[in-house]
Nucleic acid binder design. Structure first.
Lengths: 341, 341
DNA sequence: TTGTAGGCGTTATCAT
DNA sequence: ATGATAACGCCTACAA
């Protein structure tokens, strides 16, 4: 027979310590307002009873939770993991907790999770990218929930954000590619609808093409899931077309990993037969064979800044700025020059 | 001047719809107990006001949250991502939400997060592995929180769990390795302290050694972080020893990826100069060069079963069983036979 | 420094 | 089918 769980409350502690609930509460939240002696007493009682404050009651009474919510598109690959880890660490240093949920790249699910997190009393939110239903922003606004957008940078936006310019970054990489003599490019992108990062990256390539006098509209683009298998299949499809590209630029490293792998299976040598590039510079990129040329994104820095800035917003020290970080092109062996040596 | 956020409550809805709060509550939770007409009215009011139920208030009054908490050691690699994704999906199908946090492989942090999740009113918990402070189990027990342990299987345990026998699995792989003529093995493991999965895997190798008449105590073992870099450095260290192993067995695929990569940098050919094996069979394993021989773990299945079982426990349909899943040895090119062809 | 008491937004019991 | 109303566990003026 399992004893019915008898959970100790503030009252129990107060009674055990012979003080009022207010005093116990103070011992928990404002130690300085309590005498050493009673503090010791109370703490003793807390330990003896195995008391844990009820979060929900706390949230209701205080209207603060010291909790930040984050919604990321996926946990299935390392893209967000690194940054999120740093985000969590930085939050902890300031006494905040992190609640994570994944939207699996589904806008409706994200909207739902925003409401869930807010309903739970999240003091602030971290969202990825800026493209989402207006209703969501409106909701956040009405509720007065400080929100940071990350992994992106938003031109002339009213939103606080920390990230980089996906379009400009990819454009720089494309410029490099073109400067190496490539003229026949192809692109493997994540699904663009509802994903501003993906859209920006493709746009960057097109801009580069235009600037170099090439036709952006004839650029072959395949959209697929951000998965290794997706990248692989898309790559194969690209290779079967009439005019084979000499370089395939991928929307992220995971897609590129799939592409490189499939190339190998098809008997194509990278980069001699075909060059491949990625985006993100996750750890995977450097251990691929050949190592992947990609855009390095400062994941950890982004997470740290997001955390600090968000806390400042929550604690009214800031009203939300926009931070644009620098990226770096990481040249590795998967991209080869077409010029004579 | 930002308008002070005026969040609508049940009362507001009730007033707007001209009914009592009780009725509104019913419309939200037990529609069938309300007439069509009032239901429509109330829903209208809810929409008009943009009302969202306050989760914390709800949790307090109902003592149920339909929320499951999960604490995983890391989000930094894909090991748990796949299973967790399936876990979340299955939970959703039954109307449950998932709250995730990461312990970064720190037992104290995990203990803290268990309390946090319980304080938040989690109806149940998913934990990885079984090795943790007794106090935590006791706490969970006292609070009456259904808990599932995953990624492991526990001999004669009172705990509900779903997973596989890490020791037996690795032993099977080691048996294969030995049957291929290898006698000089070395191991790169994650830190064993506080990590039963890591410990079990190493034990499996030792058992295999013993069974084959080899001395398990002379097995070189390096413990390191579950990271690519950790695996790489450990590998290099192993290669510098007097008696070079002919095969390096790694505690997981991430370590193996690091090892393979470093081998390449050192000018060693895998598997001709050295064989390498992994554990988990994450996607990465098959795109490594050469593809990695590893132990395939049914991640998604594990997540699904964990979710179903945990819900059953929460809803008192089950008192917690132990499910042991099968793993499969995935033979790929990174492991080579030493026998003459 | 400590105690008293009202209120936070729901659910659920008991009437009606 | 609907309405009062008492919890739920804590925080926080306000008082002492």
């Amino acid at each position: 027979m399992p004893q019915s769980p008898n959970i100790p409350t503030l009252d129990d502690v107060a009674r055990a310590a012979g003080v009022s609930t207010a005093t116990v509460s103070r011992c928990l939240n404002e130690k300085e307002k309590v005498s050493q002696k009673t503090l010791a007493h109370v703490m003793q009682a807390i330990n003896d009873l195995g008391y844990t404050p009820n979060f929900n009651a706390r949230a209701m009474a205080a209207k603060r939770t010291h909790t930040i919510g984050a919604i990321i598109p996926t946990m299935e690959n390392a893209i967000f993991a690194k940054g999120l880890q740093a985000f969590q660490e930085t939050l902890r240093e300031s006494g905040y907790n992190l609640l994570v949920s994944s939207s699996v790249y589904q806008p409706e699910l994200e909207a739902e999770q925003v409401r869930a997190l807010v309903a739970r009393g999240a003091d602030g939110l971290l969202l990825i990218g800026f493209e989402r239903d207006h209703a969501t922003y409106e909701f956040l606004e009405r509720r007065g929930i400080p929100t940071m957008l990350a992994w992106t940078s938003i031109p002339e936006s009213v939103h606080a954000s920390v990230g980089f310019d996906n379009c400009a970054a990819m454009r720089r990489l494309a410029d490099r590619v073109l400067s190496m003599g490539h003229t026949k490019l192809a692109v493997i992108s994540g699904f663009i609808k509802g994903n501003d990062r993906a859209a920006g990256r493709v746009r960057g390539i097109k801009e580069s093409l235009s600037a170099h006098g090439l036709d952006p509209d004839s650029l072959p683009i395949i959209e697929t899931h951000y998965e290794i298998e997706g990248g692989a299949d898309a790559f194969e499809e690209l290779m079967q077309t009439e005019h084979r590209p000499t370089v395939v630029m991928c929307g992220n490293d995971v897609l590129a990993a799939g592409a490189i792998n499939r190339a190998k299976q098809l008997g194509l040598h990278v980069p001699d037969d075909i060059s491949i590039t990625g985006f993100d510079d996750i750890e995977l990129a450097s251990i691929l064979h050949p190592p992947l040329t990609t855009v390095h994104v400062p994941h950890r820095q982004m997470g740290q800044i997001a955390a600090k800035e968000l806390i400042d917003m929550v604690e009214k020290r800031s009203s939300g700025v926009m931070r644009k970080l620098d990226v770096r092109i990481e040249m590795r062996a998967s991209l080869k020059s077409l010029e004579a040596e």
